[in-house]
Amino acid sequence: MSEPIGTDIVQRLMRHLVEIEAGKLSCQDAFALLDEYADLCCHQKEAEKIMPLVQNHLHQCPDCQAFYEALLAILQSPEGANND
């Protein structure tokens, strides 16, 4: 494999190592909390103050941020709230 690895791959691998080392939320940890975080956001509560580690992870992880935005799109659609 003599082809160069892209900058994005190197960046994401390094970010992964930094996060693991710093004891920050991993993607799996953030995923486990994402439904709660999304509900807080949808109910006008200060999710970033209540769950700052999740917010921090989302700011640093484009994939989780994209997943979160897709989840929010579902919840904020007219058909999204099907739960009392």
Binding site: F31, D35, E36, A70, L71, G80, N82, N83
Partner: peptide, 18 residues
Amino acid sequence: GRSLFTTWAHKITLHVAL
């Protein structure tokens, strides 16, 4: 039960799909 059940279910479904 920390989120709405449907939010939790949407999360799992979105994860499966992606």
